[in-house]
């Protein structure tokens, strides 16, 4: 697995996409931190962009990488290596390369702006944790979609749809259901619903840390009241971990069964 991982990673790190993605975050980080006097506001803006944008890039890039390396995968399958090593190795390489772009792109401005500020460092770490989780989750989902769909157009559409669902439609449906059932106590239901959306989970993770959850809507407030900060953070982190583990297990399972 390590060989495939290393090879794919070096291939990815040479691609112009990685640099483009890295420079995007670099510019964004500098722009927000240096031209906005209020750091916590910049962090929130940065959070919103990272949560939405990095998940989109992860799902698109993941599916693109799989389809582009389709022939390569066939070549590898005839070699004396374990089947699952190919898929898991590639998956890790894509996720790690995207995470590196994010980490360095946002990290460099943060370091220059103020490493001494302990609070800022903590905020940065939480932001990166959420972003990296989202990369690993959305690339895993993309790989799952690609493994089930030979048709590239279909695969792409499902990938984009999944992202759209998690970023927009889910919240919409969530709000509509809250309105419809407003006579009932909905705290627990809304809590449960949040756990099924990695985007919401990473938002909560960041908001709990920034201690502004009450400002950012219903779910955040409920989450905080129900679990408190520490338990809330643990539960959010744990759920994100599940969101990584389950799709990866399925890549492993499907990768061993699929016909080429």
């Amino acid at each position: 697995m390590f060989k495939i991982f290393r090879y794919s990673l070096s291939d990815l790190l040479r691609s112009s996409w990685s640099y483009f993605y890295f420079s995007f975050y670099l510019l964004l980080g500098f722009g927000l931190l240096f031209f906005n006097p209020d750091v916590s506001k910049s962090v929130i803006t940065l959070m919103n962009i990272i949560v939405v944008f990095s998940s989109l890039i992860a799902v698109v890039f993941g599916i693109m990488y799989y389809y582009n390396s389709r022939e390569f995968i066939e070549l590898l399958l005839a070699q004396p290596i374990k089947r699952s090593d190919i898929f898991i190795g590639q998956y890790l390489a894509v996720s790690v390369s995207l995470s590196l772009s994010l980490l360095l792109g946002v990290g460099i401005p943060f370091v220059i702006y103020g490493v001494a500020d302990a609070d800022l460092v903590k905020n940065f770490l939480v932001l990166m944790t959420a972003g990296i989780f989202l990369n690993f989750i959305f690339v895993a989902v993309a790989y799952n979609i690609a493994l089930y769909h030979e048709n590239r157009i279909k695969g792409f559409s499902y990938a984009i749809l999944f992202w759209l669902f998690m970023t927009l439609i889910y919240d919409g449906l969530f709000l509509i259901s809250l309105m419809m059932f407003k006579e009932y106590p909905l705290e627990k239901a809304s809590l449960a619903a949040t756990l099924f959306n990695p985007i919401d989970l990473s938002r909560i993770l960041i908001l709990l840390r920034l201690d502004i959850s009450a400002l950012m809507g219903y779910t955040g407030a409920v989450f905080k009241n129900f679990f408190g900060t520490t338990l809330g953070l643990t539960i959010a982190l744990f759920s994100l971990l599940i969101w990584v583990i389950l799709p990866v297990l399925n890549i492993y399972r499907k990768g061993n069964k699929k016909d080429f």
Partner: peptide, 23 residues
């Protein structure tokens, strides 16, 4: 079934020679 070590003994020429384009 489910093994991979046996491929150490096999050389294979696939039918369609498609390779990673940027390599």
């Amino acid at each position: 079934k489910g093994k991979w070590e046996f491929r150490n003994q096999i050389s294979y020429l696939p039918q369609i020679a498609n390779f990673p384009k940027n390599m």
